[in-house]
Every structure is written in structure tokens, then in C-alpha cells.
């Protein structure tokens, strides 16, 4: 038997399969946008799209971090609480009179530190990511109310500037600073995943952690890194959220981890790890954003339909992943 005859699947039939989920998400997004435009005249306004980005910039950043974690086959339940904690700490430190820059640095350090610790617990003590990040979620949410039971407003000049600064074209359409930050984070993440050893190790671990270990890849370091990255993204998300709301509130972003996971899955990343793209996650976040916009435009639908539709989409996309058989394990 020659080696050639062992190649059973023809090249042309094999390549696109990994891309099917992302393409499906793109198609869905276009269809939903088409529905919006055909149903509501105001929907075709370009600012509607910009607003989707403005409203969901922080979600995108957090979802990008979650993509790293899910690609390794893990999960991070702590993201929503870390977002809230970051916003809360920023508001509190600003209130106590620290300079904005210092506050920014401190706030951006807390998330990754927690992520690093969670990663260590997962790697060194072999406790399931689900449980460790659940504890992280409790911890971060507890810290929020420990700092203050009530919402703390932010009046700092830097924050208000960031909140109100509009980057736009002459016709009056604009995006906020958050959108640029979000896109920068997504671009960096996409680059890291595609072109760096860290990124490729992330995929390898998601594909088969035992093999990755025996191939000599730094499994432990990578695993700790992804939770740290997720923590950093949550921290950036928290800062963006505090730009957006100009306050730190102890109960903000409750349940956000579900939206984030949903966005990542709808974006085509396989929850067992090893397959998915940051671009898909961007699309997934946009799908969630457009759903919300559609439901807002349609006055007769209530907010709970958002959850039901997201649930339905999750179902559809997971079924799709099953049908095209993206399961390497």
C-alpha cells in the first residue's frame, strides 16, 4: 500500500469545514441586518451600526479573552464579576483622589492578577476550571460590595473625556474611544493566536493536552497565560464599562459571562477547544448586539425575548457544530 492511497479525504472537501461556523455566523448577521433595514427605516442609518459597537465594545473585549480560554478547552466564569470589580475599584480610587493614570494602572493589574492565580490553581492543583473560576466569580463580586454597597459615580476629568469624546465623520456619525480600544484588542488577539507560539500552543492544548505535553509544549505556562489574558481582557472591559457608565456599581454585569460564552460559541469557537477564531467572536458579539437593537427597534417585543433568542441561536449553532462534525476528540 502506498502512502498516497491513505489520504482518504480530498483536499477541496476538507478545507472549508473549519470555516463553516464562522461563515454561518456572518450569513446570520447579514440576514438580521437585512431584516432590520427592511423593517425599520432608521435602521439603515450607519450610526445604528456604530451604536452596536459603542454599546458592546466592552463585551467584545471580554469575549476576546474568553476565546483564548475556550480554545484551550477551559472556561472562565469570573469575567462578569471581574469587569464589575475593575469598574468598582476605579470609581473608588478616583473618588479617594488618586490620579487617573495611577488608577488606570492599578485597575488594569487586578484582573490579570486574579486570572493568574486562578490559572495557577487550575494547573498546579488540577482543580476543574469551572470550579476555580466560579470561586473567582464569587470573590470578585464579593469585593465589589466590600468596597461599597452602592454605586460610586466617576467625575474624573480623564474618564469623562474618554466617555464623551467622539471620533466621527463630518456627517455626524461617530464612535467612542471604547470602540477603538476594542478593535485594537481584537486585532492584537487575532495576531497573537495566528502568529505567535503562545497562540499556537493555545490551539494545540485545545486539540489534545496530553499530546501537547509530550510534544514538549509549555502546557502549564500556556494554561496560566490564557486565564491571565482573560483577566486582563476583563479588566480592560471593566475600564471601558466605567467609561460608558461613568460609575462603578456593585451589581453591574451580573450574568455577563453567559452573554460572553454565548457570543464566543455563536462565533464558531468549539467549546471543547482547539477550533475557532477571534474574527468569529467579533461576529458573535455583533449578532448579540444586533438582536438587542432589533428588539429595541420593535417596541412590542420585551427584553426577555433577547434571552430566548440567544438561547435559540446557541442551540442552532451547537447543532451546526455537531452536524459538520468539528470534534477532534
Amino acid at each position: 500500500m502506498t502512502m498516497n492511497s491513505l489520504t482518504t479525504v480530498p483536499t477541496w472537501a476538507r478545507l472549508p469545514r473549519r470555516h463553516v461556523p464562522v461563515l454561518a455566523t456572518l450569513a446570520l448577521l447579514l440576514v438580521m441586518y437585512g431584516i432590520g433595514v427592511s423593517q425599520y427605516r432608521a435602521f439603515s442609518n450607519i450610526q445604528v451600526i456604530f451604536n452596536v459597537f459603542i454599546d458592546n465594545g466592552f463585551l467584545l473585549v471580554v469575549a476576546v479573552g474568553m476565546t483564548f480560554v475556550i480554545l484551550t478547552g477551559g472556561i472562565d466564569l469570573s469575567v462578569g464579576s471581574v469587569v464589575a470589580m475593575t469598574a468598582m475599584v476605579s470609581a473608588w480610587l478616583l473618588q479617594s483622589g488618586l490620579p487617573a493614570l495611577l488608577v488606570l494602572v492599578i485597575a488594569l493589574l487586578i484582573g490579570p492578577t486574579l486570572g493568574f492565580l486562578m490559572g495557577c490553581a487550575i494547573h498546579f492543583f488540577e482543580i476543574q476550571p469551572f470550579i476555580v473560576t466560579l470561586a473567582g466569580m464569587f470573590f470578585a463580586r464579593g469585593m465589589c460590595t466590600f468596597i461599597s454597597g452602592a454605586s460610586i459615580p466617576i467625575t474624573d476629568g480623564f474618564w469623562t473625556t474618554m466617555s464623551q469624546y467622539r471620533i466621527g465623520d463630518p456627517r455626524g456619525n461617530f464612535v467612542s474611544v471604547s470602540v477603538l480600544v476594542a478593535f485594537a484588542v481584537a486585532a492584537v488577539a487575532a495576531y497573537v493566536l495566528a502568529y505567535t507560539r503562545l497562540g499556537r500552543n493555545v490551539y494545540a492544548i485545545g486539540g489534545n493536552p496530553q499530546s501537547a505535553l509530550l510534544m514538549g509544549l509549555p502546557v502549564g505556562r500556556t494554561r496560566i497565560a490564557v486565564y491571565t489574558i482573560s483577566g486582563l481582557c476583563s479588566a480592560i472591559g471593566g475600564i471601558l464599562l466605567s467609561f460608558y457608565t461613568l460609575s462603578g456599581a456593585p451589581l453591574i454585569a451580573v450574568g455577563m459571562e453567559l452573554d460572553v460564552i454565548a457570543a464566543v460559541v455563536i462565533g464558531g469557537t468549539v467549546l471543547t477547544g482547539g477550533s475557532g477564531y477571534v474574527f468569529g467572536t467579533v461576529l458573535g458579539v455583533l449578532v448579540l448586539g444586533v438582536i438587542q437593537t432589533l428588539i429595541t427597534f420593535d417596541g412590542s417585543l420585551n427584553s426577555w425575548w433577547t434571552k430566548i433568542v440567544i438561547g435559540g441561536l446557541l442551540f442552532a449553532f451547537i447543532l451546526l457544530q455537531r452536524l459538520i462534525g468539528i470534534r477532534y476528540k
Partner: peptide, 10 residues
């Protein structure tokens, strides 16, 4: 190794 140790997704 005896069992092939590669990452099937890559």
C-alpha cells in the same frame, strides 16, 4: 510514542 501524540486539530 506508541499512541500517536499529535494535535488532531492542527
Amino acid at each position: 510514542y506508541q499512541e500517536v501524540n499529535l494535535c488532531p486539530n492542527l
